[in-house]
Amino acid sequence: MQHRQEVALIIDPSSPYDRRIVRGVAAYVQQAQRDWSLYVEEDHIDRLPDLKAWGGDGILANFDDRRVAAAVTSLGVPVVGIGGGYGYYEENPQIPYVRTDNRAIARMGAQHLIDLGFRQFAFCSEPPTRANGWAKERAEAFCEAIEEAGYPCEHFAGKHSPAKEWRLSQAALQKWVAKLRTPIGIMACNDGRARHLLQACRFVGKRVPEDVAIVGVDNDDVMCELAQPPLSSVEQGAMRVGFEAAALLDDMMQGKKPAQQRTAIPPERVVARHSTDVMAVADEEVAEALRFIRQNACRPINVRDVLDMARMSRSTLDARFRTAIGRSIHAEIRRVQIESAERLLITTTMPIKEVVQRVGVSSVQYFTAMIRNATGKTPGEIRKAALR
């Protein structure tokens, strides 16, 4: 009979990102039917277990805190690092590491704002430190994606730490926001910085989302819903980080050599809330047609319905769509249907036949082809990846 294995999770329970990682670890334990005893301590440094007395079999540790990395790297048990990708790894090349894909996160946020019709963009970061290179990586990837789409992009980091010098940090942020040309779409490096940005917009009289649309990162649902207005945010895929890290640790505890040392997990989706609930299109008739599509694409509707609403010919409205957002009317209907389908596949266990009906597609076969063409994956593969 296999003995129960003791696994320590050295994480920060106050962090939404770390809590999602724990959920991913639990999902792996349940799916793989492992008999693990999970040790989770609220104080992730001062109460790090004495492994000689504890007799543990393996450790999953958030290496974004260098003190954690230093504490667990010489304990003589299998260790897998997890985190955002900075503050840890150069000194520990032998420890496998599962991290978020910061570049993919930034590109997802950029595409969300581009799809809303914005033509002016900015990234709001924070002063660089040795441990927050993830913020710099996101800023660079966001600006690259925006510039590849043919638009300019500003980048603000500031000189003062919001945690240590709040008044100076916020004053500088307000000064920057006041000078921005609007309408503008801004991505913040995380939800905390996005909330700072919301406060700065209120202080200088910029409306969100009408003047400034804001998207953060982490999807801390409680804090995002409490923000005024509620904050759109990128769901990083932290549960998948926890799942893959647990699978890797499981192999190591069984004496297997890690297949790879470094794994980047892509983000899941943008969870859209009121802070980006706007279509930044100067052509008011196109903007009205876009709102109609967003509200009705899954009923379903077709191009004729949009033309009837707009009271225009197809050639005229299609040309104005392409000028305003770079897509045809038909392509925009499909984009909204695909976005809705992915959300249902990822966040529910609804049968695929019902998802097909919910998004207004004629058949499972056509739905599968539509999703594969758009994402490179079948509906089943999208769901399987989200549930792992």
Rank of each mutant, 00 (worst) to 15 (best):
I11Y: 02
D12M: 08
Y17H: 06
G24V: 04
G24N: 01
A26I: 05
A27E: 15
V29I: 15
R34L: 08
R34P: 02
D35G: 02
E41C: 09
H44T: 07
I45C: 06
L48S: 06
D50Y: 05
G58F: 04
L60Q: 02
L60R: 03
A61Y: 09
F63M: 10
F63I: 04
D65A: 06
V68R: 15
A70P: 04
G81S: 06
G83R: 08
G85W: 04
G87S: 09
Y89G: 02
Y89M: 01
E90M: 01
E90Q: 05
P93I: 05
Q94P: 00
Y97H: 15
V98P: 03
V98A: 05
D101W: 11
A106D: 07
G109K: 02
F121P: 05
A122T: 03
F123G: 04
C124I: 11
S125K: 12
P127Y: 08
P128S: 06
R130P: 00
N132D: 13
W134I: 01
A141M: 12
E147S: 11
G150Y: 04
C153G: 12
E154V: 06
H155I: 11
A157P: 02
K159A: 14
H160N: 10
P162Y: 14
K164S: 12
K164E: 14
Q170F: 15
A171G: 00
A171H: 13
R181Q: 14
T182F: 08
P183T: 06
P183M: 08
N190E: 14
G192P: 01
R193D: 03
R193W: 08
R195H: 13
L197T: 11
L198A: 11
R202V: 14
G205C: 10
K206H: 11
P209K: 10
E210P: 04
N219C: 13
E235N: 13
Q236T: 15
V241L: 10
V241K: 13
G242I: 06
F243R: 12
F243A: 15
A245Q: 12
A246K: 07
A246I: 10
M252V: 06
G255M: 09
K256D: 00
Q260H: 13
A264W: 02
A264T: 13
I265F: 12
P266E: 09
P267S: 13
P267I: 13
V270I: 08
A272S: 14
T276K: 09
A280W: 03
A282I: 11
D283G: 09
R291A: 09
I293C: 06
C298H: 10
C298T: 15
I301F: 14
I301L: 12
V303R: 14
V306E: 03
L307A: 04
R311H: 09
R311E: 10
R311A: 08
S315R: 14
D318F: 10
R322D: 01
S328I: 02
V336E: 12
I338D: 01
M350L: 15
V355Y: 00
R358Y: 12
Y366D: 01
A369V: 07
A369M: 04
I371P: 05
N373V: 01
A374C: 03
P379V: 11
G380M: 03
R383L: 07
R383A: 12
R383D: 00
